[in-house]
Design a protein around this nucleic acid. Structure first.
Lengths: 112, 112
DNA sequence: CCGAATCCGCAAGGATACTG
DNA sequence: CAGTATCCTTGCGGATTCGG
């Protein structure tokens, strides 16, 4: 049967994953559990505060991660994957494995 | 074990898939086989010649699709998935399924 | 028929400084 | 500690025109 371009839902999934820092943020939260803002910032070298905030907000918007604020001084905010967000795991894993193979393949070509 | 941000190969896979038209192009070639340029253009409504050319070149560059030129007048060029490109199928399918579920979920929320 | 070449707008990404 | 607020740069995507 013919593919219906209008129903190409791949882009919906892509929209969630795309963003320069989203994959690594999701990988960290998936594999290492809850992190607070500063921990996440240290865990993702090179990211600026603004970008971290932006990406986290976008992921929260889509119910992929949850944000828990502790009303105290100094402030404390924790981020973790939602159950729904965890359903992305197979995709992330598949992409990670494929990406690794792809990189190896490229390196071999360079050797020739 | 801790995730190594530097080794986050998810982005390598993402780099292949990202591009406004790449998912649908790949889906068409995967499910419907070889297409020539003009067929592809008709199959992907809204795409311009430049964009189609650009996206095809990028995919060819990564060995995802192959380009076969028939030296004749008028010109004829056929595009098809390489065996390597076909290895993307599980990812594409997983994303398509997840995307569909995601869209349905969003629609339900709107109803509330 | 299958492009290449050029020009352009806009939004994502980023550097830096400031705040409850 | 966990963010805003502002300004700036870059590059993708798009419209259009020309060529083999």
């Amino acid at each position: 049967m013919a593919v219906q371009p209008e129903l190409c839902r791949v882009e919906d999934a892509l929209g969630i994953l795309v963003g320069k820092w989203k994959p690594i943020i999701l990988l960290v939260l998936l594999h290492e559990g809850t992190h607070r803002f500063s921990e996440l910032k240290r865990r993702v070298p090179g990211i600026t505060q603004k970008m971290l905030t932006t990406q986290l907000r976008e992921l929260e918007e889509e119910d992929i991660i949850s944000r828990k604020v502790y009303p105290q001084v100094p402030p404390k905010v924790e981020y973790s994957m939602t159950d729904y967000g965890k359903s992305l795991e197979p995709i992330l894993t598949a992409m990670h494995e494929w990406g690794t193979a792809h990189t190896l393949r490229k390196m071999q070509k360079v050797q020739d």
